[in-house]
């Protein structure tokens, strides 16, 4: 199954000033083993990809492709192959809001089961729970211990 993830930067003035840099790293968790996709390739951003783009950043950063269209932007899209059963796709989204120098890391976790993708966890920039709480919930979902998560994804 092909999966996509995005990094981007945007500077816009209308309807509201926006200046952000966002990067995404992906981790796969299967049977409590954490790995990085080895074959992630840069591909062209196609119109159809706006749905995946919005899915990653709509619920996390409240940003969608239409916000980018309003200004100057660059999107880097990467694609990788993954098994389509019992895999967690963990997206670690790091953003810098250049206007107020806010920097943070958010997580979005999708679960692939029998070829169907379901979002099981999303951090929202504006409704962020305390760090400890987030780590506890994420490790419970992924069924891994806290230290393993911290070591491998650099928390």
């Amino acid at each position: 199954m092909k999966e996509k993830f995005f990094s981007f930067n945007v500077v816009a003035d209308d309807p509201k000033p926006l200046n952000m840099e966002v990067s995404t790293e992906v981790f796969l968790v299967k049977n409590r083993e954490i790995s990085k996709p080895s074959d992630a390739n840069v591909v062209d951003f196609n119109p159809e990809d706006i749905i995946c783009f919005d899915d990653d950043f709509g619920g996390t950063l409240n940003i969608s492709f239409n916000d980018l269209v309003h200004g100057k932007y660059n999107i880097e899209e990467k694609e990788f192959d993954t098994e389509d059963d019992d895999v967690f796709i963990v997206k670690k989204i790091t953003y810098i809001d250049i206007r107020n120098r806010e920097k943070n890391t958010l997580f979005k976790i999708d679960k692939l089961k029998e070829g169907i993708k379901e979002t099981v966890y999303v951090d929202n920039r504006y409704f962020l729970k305390p760090w400890k709480h987030r780590v506890r919930v994420i490790t419970e979902i992924l069924d891994i211990d806290e230290q393993a998560l911290k070591d491998i994804i650099g928390l």
Partner: peptide
Amino acid sequence: HQHDGKGNEWTHVPLIAPC
């Protein structure tokens, strides 16, 4: 005078199509 909202923590439908 534009101020954007924070969105919603919980919504009724999943994101599956463009706005």
